[in-house]
Design a protein around this nucleic acid. Structure first.
Length: 269
DNA sequence: ATGGTCGACAATCGA
């Protein structure tokens, strides 16, 4: 008898205001049919969270962690979730940038949903405290994951705000000193990834093919200029096999779209 | 080289 395999689909999306874009989650569900949806930049404090929305979409289980105006993460799931309470406040800030859960698949999975600090405009931690925050956050997370390595049956997803590979940006040369693609960020990003994770979309899409998940609002026509970056990621430990990836580019043209589009990966677990 | 547009929330701040 071959081993029993089941399929699990996970989507990550920086929704840039959950309350404003709640109707778009229905489109996401219909287009991608994920078992779990990880959201970033929900921008809703917990006391104002739309508590009925996840079940109305078909996701009977959820966790959320939000604050006023900024940041905020949430996980919607068709399967029961157990929230992990043993993770620190990264960089000493109660910033609502991380949730970790166990998903009650036949063999349980761990899912981490991260919203990494964007890092401001100046790629110098001495001059720019936001960049120092980003680098420090990455160092702390990496040390934590390294201490637990090698993890198994674990996914790390979210808006990591770094485009690590040459073809994760529209111009490697033009963006070398632009926050999100600088060598120091890429090095830290890969050091974290190398604590035992596979970059799942890139396991399925050749490295010389452009792959983006974000297009700035500041371009007249995102599709024509196509100055994208791959900031949104799905990592998996090697015991979870990615079999399909979908970047929902059409979502960038949805009414009142986010500047990020959903990324969905199907795994054999 | 610069400025361009969003969202939250009520003047800017963060992206």
């Amino acid at each position: 008898m071959p081993p029993l395999r089941s399929v699990f689909r996970i989507a990550t999306w920086n929704i840039n205001s959950l309350r404003l874009r709640l109707p778009l989650l229905e489109r996401l569900r219909d287009a991608l049919n994920p078992d779990v949806i990880c959201l970033q930049e929900t921008k809703v404090p917990d006391e104002a969270f739309p508590e009925l929305a996840p079940a109305a979409l078909g996701y009977g289980h959820y966790v959320r962690r939000g604050m006023k105006s900024y940041n905020g993460v949430a996980i919607f799931s068709r399967l029961p979730l157990t929230l992990h309470l043993d993770w620190p406040e990264w960089y000493g800030k109660p910033d609502c940038r991380h949730l970790a859960v166990t998903v009650a698949t036949a063999q349980p999975l761990t899912v981490h949903n991260f919203y990494i600090p964007a890092g401001g405009d100046i790629a110098d931690p001495e001059l720019n405290p936001k960049f120092a925050h980003k680098l420090g956050f990455l160092d702390e997370v990496t040390a934590h994951f390294a201490a637990l390595a090698p993890l198994t049956r674990t996914l790390v997803v979210g808006d990591l705000n770094i485009a690590p590979l040459e073809h994760d940006v529209w111009s490697h040369k033009a963006l070398l000193n632009v926050v999100s693609h600088t060598p120091v960020e890429v090095e830290k990003h890969l050091a974290w990834q190398n604590t035992n994770f596979i970059d799942a979309p890139r396991a399925l899409v050749p490295h010389d093919r452009k792959l983006y998940s974000w297009w700035s609002y500041r371009n007249n026509d995102w599709k024509v200029s196509n100055r994208g970056r791959r900031l949104d990621h799905v990592w998996a430990t090697p015991d979870l096999k990615p079999v399909a990836v979908q970047t929902l580019e059409e979502a960038r043209d949805w009414p009142q779209s986010s500047d990020h589009v959903p990324v969905c990966v199907e795994f054999e677990i």
